Simulated assay, not measured.
Amino acid sequence: MAVVRSFLFNVLAFALTLLMGVGAFPIRWFFKRLALPYAKLWSRLVLGLFEQICGVEVRITGREHLAALQGPALIASQHQSAFDTLIWMLLVPHPSYVMKGELRHIPLLGPMLILAGMMPIERADGSKALRLLLRETEKAAQAGKQIIIFPEGTRTAPGEKVALKPGIAAMAAHTSLPVVPVATNSGLFWGRNAFFKKSGVLHVAIGAPLAPASRKVLLPQIAEAWQALEKPFA
């Protein structure tokens, strides 16, 4: 049954993405302000298919920490799945993801990511990439956006521990924005490059904001917050 559900979801999600990608041309040409609402609609539909077809219950805790911010913030989320790149389109009003620069070249999708206000960064550019990241972060903060970054730097397996990238600490120090730690177990249900999807309760746990600090202080704080947030998942 899981095979059938997975196949059906993958086919429908691909068809939906293709259809909406083609349908986005008028927005790209004439109605650019609709790019973010359109991206939110696409995310809502894909995740709706995921929940209904694959038998997944998405359980989100800690929303009160987001409500208390009332403005721009840095969202430091674990990254286990493509799910994580969709859910924040629905959880905050003005999301802006820090994403790999090569994603802008994806046909149909890439141009919409830029119009929707995402932040493509070429990580291989080293110090140049960091300077660009800080400039884009400052612009996004001034626009009142919630900036989503995955400090692990890539998708990881549930329970896998990797050294966190220092970019989040530089962003926090540069903007004085609070950092909201977020843990998830999404990789159990929608794994990295996985065709098969599993049913169950998918958790997104949002923690209390952390104050900006040096990388030696902030990175361990994020890791500790994630560990505490993961405990109810078991």
Rank of each mutant, 00 (worst) to 15 (best):
E160V: 09
A173G: 12
E138T: 15
P107Y: 03
E122C: 00
G110T: 07
P111T: 11
K139I: 10
R123C: 08
E122Y: 11
I121A: 09
G110N: 05
P111Y: 12
A124P: 00
T137H: 01
I148P: 04
L108G: 04
G159D: 14
E160R: 13
G126M: 10
G144A: 09
K161Y: 09
P107Q: 03
P120D: 05
L130H: 05
L132G: 12
P166I: 02
I121L: 10
G167N: 03
L132E: 15
I114P: 06
A169G: 02
A170L: 07
E136S: 10
V179E: 01
T175Y: 07
M119E: 02
P107G: 02
T137M: 15
M119C: 09
P178I: 04
L164V: 08
L132V: 05
G159Q: 14
Q142A: 15
P166F: 01
V162T: 12
K165L: 12
Q146K: 04
A163D: 14
A116E: 08
K139H: 08
K139N: 08
S127I: 10
A143R: 06
G144I: 11
I168K: 04
A129V: 06
L177Q: 01
T156R: 13
T175R: 11
K161R: 15
V179F: 01
L130A: 13
T154G: 06
L113C: 04
P111C: 12
I149A: 04
Q142N: 13
A172N: 01
A141Y: 03
Q146S: 12
R131C: 10
L133W: 00
T156V: 14
A169L: 00
T154V: 02
V162Y: 09
K128E: 14
E152R: 05
I168C: 04
I114D: 07
P151D: 01
I149G: 06
A169I: 01
A173Q: 15
A170E: 02
A129E: 07
E160I: 10
K161A: 12
G159E: 13
P120M: 06
R135H: 13
P178K: 09
V162S: 09
P178M: 11
L113Q: 08
G153Q: 03
T175S: 14
M171I: 12
K145F: 05
P111E: 11
P120Q: 10
T137G: 12
I149P: 02
H174Y: 13
P151A: 02
E136L: 13
K139C: 01
A141V: 06
P151R: 00
L113V: 05
G153F: 02
E136A: 11
T156Y: 05
A124E: 14
I121G: 08
L164Y: 12
A116V: 07
A157V: 11
R135I: 06
A157C: 07
R135S: 15
L134K: 03
M118E: 11
T154C: 06
G144V: 07
S176T: 08
K128S: 13
G153V: 00
E160A: 13
K165N: 08
E160P: 10
M118S: 12
R155W: 03
V179M: 02
P158A: 09
F150H: 13
L115E: 13
